[in-house]
Computed example of a mutant assay.
Amino acid sequence: MTAESHVRVDGRRLAYVDFGGTGAPVLALHGHFGRARMFAPLAAALAPGHRVIALEQRGHGHSDRAAEFTPAGYVADAAEFLRRLDLGPVVVLGHSMGGVVAFQLAARHPELVRALVVADAAARNRQPEVAHPVLDVRGWPRRAPTLRALRDQVEALGIPDATYFLESAVEHPDGWGFLFDQADMMASQQALVGDWWPDWLASTCPALLVHGQDSIVLPTAMAREMAGQRPNTRLREFPGCGHWVHDDDPVGFAHAVQEFLDTV
Results as ranks from 00 to 15, higher is better:
Pro48Tyr: 00
His95Ser: 10
Asp77Tyr: 05
Tyr74Met: 14
Arg114Ile: 05
Arg35Phe: 02
Arg84Thr: 15
Ile53Cys: 00
Met38Ile: 10
Phe81Ser: 03
Tyr74Gly: 08
Ala76Glu: 14
Asp64Pro: 10
Val117Phe: 09
Glu80Trp: 04
Ala54Gln: 00
Gln104Leu: 15
Ala102Ser: 15
Ala121Gly: 06
Ala102Trp: 13
Val117Gln: 10
Ala123Arg: 01
Leu55Tyr: 04
Gly88Ile: 13
Leu116Trp: 10
Val113Asn: 10
Pro48Val: 01
Arg108Ala: 15
Ser63Gln: 11
Pro71Phe: 05
Val113Ile: 14
Arg58Glu: 07
Val92Pro: 08
Ile53Met: 02
Val118Leu: 06
Arg83Ile: 11
Asp120Ser: 05
Pro48Asp: 01
Ala78Cys: 09
Arg51Pro: 03
His62Phe: 14
Gln104Asp: 13
Ala107Val: 09
Ala119Gly: 06
Ala54Asp: 03
Phe103Asn: 08
Asp64Glu: 15
Val92Leu: 08
Pro48Glu: 02
Leu116Ile: 11
Ala44Ile: 03
Ala66Glu: 11
Arg84Phe: 06
Ala115Gly: 14
Leu42Ser: 01
Ala43Gln: 00
Pro89Glu: 12
Thr70Arg: 10
Leu42Cys: 01
Arg37Trp: 03
Arg65Val: 13
Arg83His: 14
Ala40Trp: 00
Leu87Met: 14
Gly88Trp: 12
Ile53Ala: 03
Val100Asp: 11
Met97Ile: 12
Ala36Gln: 03
Ala40Ser: 10
Arg37Cys: 02
Leu116Gly: 10
Glu56Gln: 04
Leu87Glu: 10
His50Asp: 02
His60Ile: 01
Arg124Tyr: 02
Gly99Trp: 08
Ala45Val: 00
Leu87Asn: 11
Asp77Ala: 04
Arg65Cys: 13
Pro110Ser: 09
Ala43Met: 00
Ala122Gly: 11
Ala122Ser: 15
His109Thr: 12
Val118Arg: 07
Pro110Met: 09
Pro110Arg: 09
Glu111Ala: 15
Gly94Trp: 02
Arg84Leu: 15
Ala123Glu: 00
Ala79Pro: 05
Ala106Lys: 12
Gly99Phe: 07
His60Ala: 04
Asp120Lys: 09
Ala54Cys: 03
His95Ile: 10
Val113Gly: 09
Val117His: 10
Val117Arg: 09
Ala40Gln: 06
Ala40Asn: 02
Leu112Trp: 11
Val75Cys: 03
Arg124Gly: 00
Leu105Ser: 13
Ala78Asn: 02
Arg65Leu: 13
Glu56Asp: 08
Ala72Phe: 10
Val113Trp: 07
Gly61Asn: 06
